Computed example of a mutant assay.
Amino acid sequence: MTMLAENPAGDLEAQLWALRGRGFRFLDPRDDQGEVVALVGVRAHHDVLDVVRLHSESDVVAARMPGDSDVLAPARVLWERAGAAREVLDAMLALPDDWVPRPAGGCR
């Protein structure tokens, strides 16, 4: 897979460095031939997990889930975006660290 090799340095690289600066740790799972299948970043904070999965420049998923979630199959997702890298990573970077949805019918 040449996902990152095809993308010139610029916005995506800057966004990945910004995520890393916020505490994301990245790994690159590989298939049986050793090819990268995705770039996955995870950050634990404020009793939540933030996860980004980059499969290609146009196929990115970012999510926030409770801290005790199974990142591969979360039972509950608090926030999620999917789409092109630039928009999805911008949305994750703009998400306040302490943001969690209010319970329905809760006090304001």
Rank of each mutant, 00 (worst) to 15 (best):
Q33T: 12
H55W: 05
L12E: 08
R76N: 07
G10L: 03
P74E: 01
E57D: 10
V51G: 03
D32L: 11
E6I: 07
D68C: 05
D32W: 12
W17Y: 15
L78E: 01
A75G: 10
L72M: 11
D98L: 04
V60T: 06
V52F: 06
L39S: 10
G41R: 10
L4I: 12
D47R: 13
R53C: 07
A85G: 04
V42H: 13
A84I: 09
C107Q: 14
R30M: 03
R102A: 14
V77P: 10
A104K: 15
Q33G: 09
E13C: 01
L49C: 01
V61P: 01
G10R: 07
L95D: 05
Q15Y: 03
M3A: 13
A62P: 07
E35Q: 14
A82M: 12
D97P: 03
V100P: 03
F24G: 04
D11F: 13
E87P: 03
A104W: 14
D47P: 01
P103L: 13
W79I: 04
D98Y: 06
R25Q: 13
D31H: 07
P101E: 04
L78C: 04
V100I: 10
R22F: 01
L93E: 00
D28A: 15
L4Y: 03
R20C: 08
G23M: 03
P66E: 00
V71K: 08
L93F: 01
D97G: 08
A44M: 11
V36P: 02
S58Y: 10
C107K: 15
A18L: 00
A38P: 05
V77Y: 08
L49F: 03
A38N: 09
A5G: 12
A82Q: 13
A75Y: 02
D90F: 00
V61Q: 08
E57V: 11
P101N: 08
L19N: 05
A94N: 06
G105T: 06
R102G: 07
R64Q: 00
D31R: 09
D28P: 06
A82R: 15
R25W: 11
V100Q: 11
A9C: 11
A94G: 08
S56N: 00
V40S: 04
D70P: 02
V61E: 08
L72G: 12
A85R: 01
E35W: 12
R102C: 07
G83M: 04
R22G: 07
A62Q: 07
P96Y: 00
V88K: 01
A14T: 14
M65L: 11
V36I: 11
G83S: 07
D32E: 15
Q33D: 15
L89R: 05
G106N: 09
H46T: 06
D50I: 01
D70W: 05
L93N: 00
L54V: 14
C107D: 15
L39I: 14
A82L: 09
W17T: 15
E80C: 12
R76K: 14
F26H: 06
L54F: 02
A9G: 09
V42P: 02
R108K: 10
T2E: 15
D59R: 09
L95T: 04
F24Q: 08
N7P: 05
R64P: 00
V51S: 05
A44T: 13
V40R: 14
G105W: 02
N7R: 13
G67E: 00
A14H: 14
G34S: 04
R30G: 00
D90R: 07
R81Y: 05
P101T: 08
P74C: 02
A44H: 14
